[in-house]
Design a protein around this nucleic acid. Sequence first.
DNA 1: GATGAATGAGAATTCATTCAT
DNA 2: TATGAATGAATTCTCATTCAT
Lengths: 211, 211, 211, 211
Amino acid sequence: MPREVRERQMLDAAVEVFARRGYNAASMDEIAELAGASKPLVYLYLNSKEELFSACIRREAEALMAAVGAASEPDAPADARLWSGLRAFFAYTAEHPSGWAVLSCQARTHGGPFALVVAELRQQIVALVTRLIAATAATASAGCGAPPDGHEVSGLAHALVGAAESLACWANTGTDDVPSAQETAATLMNVAWVGLENLMNGRRWSPDGRS
Amino acid sequence: MPREVRERQMLDAAVEVFARRGYNAASMDEIAELAGASKPLVYLYLNSKEELFSACIRREAEALMAAVGAASEPDAPADARLWSGLRAFFAYTAEHPSGWAVLSCQARTHGGPFALVVAELRQQIVALVTRLIAATAATASAGCGAPPDGHEVSGLAHALVGAAESLACWANTGTDDVPSAQETAATLMNVAWVGLENLMNGRRWSPDGRS
Amino acid sequence: MPREVRERQMLDAAVEVFARRGYNAASMDEIAELAGASKPLVYLYLNSKEELFSACIRREAEALMAAVGAASEPDAPADARLWSGLRAFFAYTAEHPSGWAVLSCQARTHGGPFALVVAELRQQIVALVTRLIAATAATASAGCGAPPDGHEVSGLAHALVGAAESLACWANTGTDDVPSAQETAATLMNVAWVGLENLMNGRRWSPDGRS
Amino acid sequence: MPREVRERQMLDAAVEVFARRGYNAASMDEIAELAGASKPLVYLYLNSKEELFSACIRREAEALMAAVGAASEPDAPADARLWSGLRAFFAYTAEHPSGWAVLSCQARTHGGPFALVVAELRQQIVALVTRLIAATAATASAGCGAPPDGHEVSGLAHALVGAAESLACWANTGTDDVPSAQETAATLMNVAWVGLENLMNGRRWSPDGRS
DNA sequence: GATGAATGAGAATTCATTCAT
DNA sequence: TATGAATGAATTCTCATTCAT
């Protein structure tokens, strides 16, 4: 069996086991067994548990970015692109729960290199969303009001991404009657869009009274 | 030294170590040392690593709920209560990063009993937020429009809680220029409030055209 | 069982096994078993294989130096002290073959800290022997001839120590009809003493003709 | 590439690696890589790690014997032959430190077949030296005194060989200001020659008084 | 003649856990 | 109430060795 195939099998198995057990509790024995290979072979190809984990994170991060990136037609209006991206994000995380679990939960609980890769991934996504929101705002405000405050747009993007992450994570834990992926995407989109509109119109909530 | 004090010290130490190392990598040796007690004593009081972890989760969950609950004066208007709750939530998680880390990250990565406790906690919070939003909506809509759809309110609550969780988690990782707790609370409040208002006014975003 | 006793047993076992198998082939399992303790206990007391080996070397080096040092009455004439030292050296190495094997063979084949300790031990012994030879020379030459050349004395000391080491090592391999310890000591003493006398009298061997 | 050449490369690599790492720590991977061949080929030619090691020892032992043997013109006087042999020995060991390290250190730390080959080598050298010393003695005593005692000659030979071995070993460890090979040879020659002379003249050192 | 692919066995080390005191 | 002493069971990782090609 050629090396490439074996390596993919190993990564698949590793993602699965890391997601199920967490980094520390995941044993190389279990990974090797699930991959249908012997432990020495895993070490021959992937050197160590840390490198294996690292490879998993990189692969999953790239796949997720690719999935989200592929969803948006570059020429569509910004809001449509945001919508597509959200749907793709929820669809992908729903279809690859293990990969998403590794990215969102496991990788973050480890300092150093792992967290960095994930932080970078998140940074990219936030930047992308910020751009989309800003573009949406520009489009929408064309005929109506004040341009939005950059800082607030950024805050909105962070909140949106945070909500998306958390909801995706939550949806994958399974047991509850969580809003479906499609529903969730719609709600988020709604919040983002209407929130944006209000921001443009200067409507705010403030502790001491309504704007 | 009375048992109660010792036990608290142990739980404090355990929360700290679990947060720092993760469940598996946390060693009973380190916990015992940090607690200033001998290992057999830890076992005498808390039986096993799992029970110790479980006790940590329960204590932290209750403390968080208490902090959030204490923040809202029951007679204040709903939006003020939501605002207070959000501020309390961010304040508490910022002041107890270890406890929050255990709740949000460590506990979720372990199947079975642990995740259940956390799920329950979340359920309570979502329910609370849903009530608050609904009340806010009722108040706000008093003189203006249609009553909000329960399902959508629930979606909004989920998104809000998700965003809050994720942002709190993110804020605790520290290194980046993350919006401050106060700022974040304000942004979330804004989104929730204006989102709500729009929902009441029937304004929606939909894929095929603006409402 | 008190810790000190256990630790000594462990060191005894370790010296034995290191001597028998060599550093790398020695397994902690075998050492623990021979010490009558469990492996974790060995690690608890002696931290790692390297530290265990290091502790063995230090202990054996000190014991050897002590044995040789204790043999010589400081007020005896230098040649008597050399004689006592040689006998003590051969007696000790014959009685503690494992310790000597570790010092002479195993420790030298490992770079870094181990070799350093052994090198230091050897340095001390060579220095001691050099002093003794020089003193012997001074005594002997009192009424007869030229003072010996320091460099040659040093060379003689090196050769003597080298011969002693090698013969002790050889004697411990056992199987052959090797000269007994006592005999060997006598031969070496003879060589040293007469060699010295000749050196003082200026008699040398040279390639192109006899002295 | 013809088999013979390959085999020599493999042995060269093996000697190097065995010397550097010791028998157990030497890995067949490293040897194969250094030899520029694949591991299966090494196994095809040399069957196993033990056989490979054995082959190394045999080759190095023969080469050393050959070098020492080639140095002495059979018709020269015995002392000149001893002198030539010593110089050749020190020259060879200095030029082939890895080979000498394998012979002197690695091989001895392993029981069974390996030690035997080395013991045999040593036996041959001791025998040769004994013959040379005896011949030297015969020559020297021609006109002067008692024939030397065979047992003592043998003791002298052992001491001489031991000193030579140990000094060669020591010289290869490098770092210290060890007497140079040439110097060492001279010192040893001197000791041997004058020791011998004294033996012939019946001068001895004895514990209870000078001869 | 030569090798990429593969593994069973065993190495050091750590940990949760329990007695005897 | 408190602990020093002790361990069985796992974990990561390495290595000599063998096929199928």
